[in-house]
């Protein structure tokens, strides 16, 4: 999420700089350059907008977590520690793996929806999609206790209406 936020801020900054440059160059009658900077500003603005929407969805996924797997201690290189941690969150509205987002249940009955879930000893298998495309995702769940798995399955059913098949426990 931090990476998404950073990208959003970067694009917003670029858009602001582009607008200021375009206005300044336009005022100084450098119309070609002003047009180029205007185009850059517009493009950056659209990208910033896209990152804002991504951030909103990521926040929604994080706020409604069902299973959350933190990276094991020591697995993050020191130089990367201040950047995005690769936390995995399985939630009511999708999966968040670091800054990668898989969404479902955000656009009603006609959008992408969670179709099936299965939990084994190591992983949770999630099948989701719409009328055109279906994706199957495997995520390490990190759960070691039987009760924790049952609780997670119960919460998944409560939030998404999908009964997860539990195997190997």
């Amino acid at each position: 999420m931090k990476r998404i936020r950073k990208r959003r801020n970067g694009f917003a900054l670029l858009a602001a700089a582009g607008i200021i440059s375009a206005v300044s160059l336009g005022a100084a009658c450098f119309f070609e350059a002003a047009f180029a900077f205007g185009a850059i500003a517009f493009g950056s603005f659209l990208l910033a907008l896209r990152q804002t929407l991504l951030l909103r969805d990521a926040t929604l996924i994080r706020d409604n977590r069902i299973i959350s797997v933190s990276p094991p201690p020591g697995s993050i290189p020191v130089k990367k520690k201040n950047n995005d941690t690769e936390e995995t969150v399985v939630s009511t509205f999708g999966v968040l793996i670091g800054s990668k987002i898989y969404r479902w249940g955000l656009s009603g009955v006609h959008g992408v929806r969670l179709n099936c879930a299965c939990i084994d000893k190591e992983r949770i298998y999630l099948t989701f999609g719409d009328a055109i495309r279906t994706i199957r995702l495997e995520v390490l769940h990190g759960m070691t206790q039987n009760q924790t798995v049952l609780d997670a399955a119960q919460k998944l059913w409560y939030e998404t209406g999908i009964s997860a098949g539990i195997t190997g426990w």
Binding site: R56, L60, D63, N64, G105, S107, G108, V109, H110
Partner: peptide, 17 residues
């Protein structure tokens, strides 16, 4: 005990259903 945007998303899904 959920966020307002979560409620809005649930409400949107309910409208759709």
């Amino acid at each position: 005990f959920i966020s307002e945007s979560t409620v809005k998303t649930h409400a949107r899904n309910i409208f759709s259903k």
